[in-house]
Design a protein around this nucleic acid. Structure first.
Lengths: 117, 117
DNA sequence: CATATATGCAACTAAAAGGTTGCGCGTAGC
DNA sequence: GCTACGCGCAACCTTTTAGTTGCATATATG
């Protein structure tokens, strides 16, 4: 049956999934994540330099991303460096995989019942 | 290097990913998807019966989900039956997987550079 | 020390999102 | 043919969200 046994540490609750999905739903935030990942970490001021929005707007986005667990913030002197957090994205991936499996097996079951007639 | 070769049909553009993620971000919509999947298809009126919101609100959610490609609508006489669309959810899963891989390999590269000092 | 740079906090605005009510219309079914 | 049921459309309300501006605070650095 090819079952993948997942670790309990990978479990994520409904509220956290909602936060992560909402954070990822915004195009600007996805672009920020790309930039941070590509640069291997960045500050709000730096990120704002490459976008058509103010630093304050970027800061708000970063706070949403931090709350969602998709980035971490670390203070270094007078600046705050943000880094991407792949584990949370992996949890989103697994949530989607599990849901898709459920949908598929349910549809398969329905189809088999229909064929039996 | 264990590369997974994906089919082009699985590709999804940035706009569609945004729509799908936004659709999935709402708790009520995730619950609706659960209900539809579990019942193997359902109508707006039926779904509204099991939730503390009006049929109209449910209809709006279903239209968002349809637009995002997560459900399909099919008219049967005077009622409209909605069914889940696992393929779109799989595309979300793969999008997350690809992004996570990028993030991880970038962080790995940074770490190796740091260790070389 | 003085200045420049990066962040933090608060108030405000405009648009989008989730939800409601009311009503008109097609389709089943007795 | 009449009635009931499910659906579609439109107007309206309220809260959230993305963004702005203005100012205060902390830390480098010449």
């Amino acid at each position: 049956m090819n079952v993948v046994v997942a670790d309990n540490r990978d479990q994520i609750d409904n509220g956290q999934i909602g936060e992560a999905l909402a954070a990822l739903a915004d195009l600007t935030r996805r672009q920020l994540l790309d930039q941070i990942a590509a640069a291997g970490g960045a500050t709000a001021t730096r990120l704002a330099g490459g976008m058509p929005i103010t630093r304050q707007a970027v800061v708000k986005h970063l706070s949403v991303l931090t709350q969602a667990g998709l980035v971490t913030a670390q203070r270094q002197g007078r600046e705050v460096r943000y880094a991407v957090q792949p584990s949370r994205l992996r949890q989103v991936e697994q949530w989607a995989a599990r849901a898709a499996e459920q949908w598929e097996s349910r549809l398969d079951a329905i189809k088999h019942i229909a064929e039996r007639e």
